[in-house]
């Protein structure tokens, strides 16, 4: 009898996870209906105007979608030249040594810093640097946000991909060495080609992280509702516009923000799903 109750409890706990997911999706959809009903789904996604003026309320998600995609991909671009070396450093060159332990501690500490503190650092240290380099007048914008975002996702991409790099079998590496390859050539032709899909998946998952990152981006992107046309433009991402306006929004505007949340939810879900599937096939 007790066993039966216990097993039911276990099942219920697992069921709670299903309920949370179902609930998230349900409430996002319910919250979005007003906005989608008013503007039409396609129209909502494809217009860039965001005007809370009560006489002419007009909301469209396009500029935030563009802003999100731009910051995230730019962050990914900045992330690769550092996370790949760190992955090689920990997963190949110094695998299992004390110095790799030091490096992974550095990376883990970076991963533990809260988003809001990254935002502060970006605001007080990086922004003045951007200004003094003459890249932008105020120092806010896509570029500043992406740089900080890149630092935030490097630990994630690096530790995932170093796992895949260290999984490449010694037998293959030895085969290449026995044919006279240098270590660089072994990395290039054997390690990268055998772990390529795993490394790729690491970047997909890191991109998923970047898409939904909120606080640091909100503090650095400048929060303007326009489609960015250059890297130093100010803009808004989907997450940052929600963070910025959620507290003061109601009715149609609130529903539009929730609709943006739904879109963000679906995009990150798809991106994460693709990443996990690639990893599953890799293993």
């Amino acid at each position: 009898m007790r066993d039966k109750i216990f097993k039911i409890l276990l099942l219920l706990s697992a069921l709670i996870i299903v309920l949370i997911c179902g609930g998230m999706f349900y409430f996002l959809v319910m919250g979005s209906t007003e906005a989608f009903g008013h503007f039409g789904i396609f129209n909502f996604i494809s217009t860039a105007e965001w005007d809370p003026n009560p006489d002419n309320e007009q909301y469209g998600a396009l500029s935030f979608i563009v802003g999100t995609v731009m910051t995230s991909f730019l962050a990914l671009l900045f992330c690769i030249p550092f996370s790949l070396p760190v992955a090689l450093f920990n997963g190949e060159y110094f695998r299992g040594t004390k110095i790799a332990l030091f490096m992974s501690t550095v990376v883990n500490l970076l991963a533990g810093i809260p988003s809001v503190i990254y935002g502060l650092w970006g605001f007080y240290t990086l922004r003045p640097l951007i200004i003094s380099l003459g890249l932008s007048e105020q120092g806010f914008g896509i570029l500043t946000a992406s740089l900080v975002l890149a630092i935030m996702i490097i630990p994630y991409a690096a530790s995932l991909s170093s796992e895949f790099i260290s999984m490449v079998s010694n037998e293959l590496k030895e085969a290449a060495y026995s044919l006279g390859a240098t270590r660089f050539e072994v990395i290039k032709s054997v390690i990268f080609s055998s772990s390529a899909s795993g490394i790729f998946a690491s970047y997909i998952l890191a991109l998923g992280r970047a898409l939904g990152e909120t606080m640091a981006v909100t503090m650095l992107i400048g929060n303007t509702n326009n489609i960015p046309t250059s890297l130093t433009d100010t803009s808004n991402t989907m997450a940052s516009v929600i963070a910025n306006q959620f507290g003061e929004a109601s009715d149609l505007r609130l529903s539009s923000l929730i609709a943006i949340g739904l879109i963000l939810f679906l995009i990150t879900a798809v991106i994460n799903f693709i990443g996990k599937m690639i990893i599953k096939r890799f293993n």
Binding site: G212, T214, I242, T268
Partner: peptide, 23 residues
Amino acid sequence: VKFLTDLIQGTPSIIVGIIAYTV
């Protein structure tokens, strides 16, 4: 359930905020 667990883990925190607000 495993798949959905990963889904929750990948969900941006701001969306969890929206849900807690709504519910």
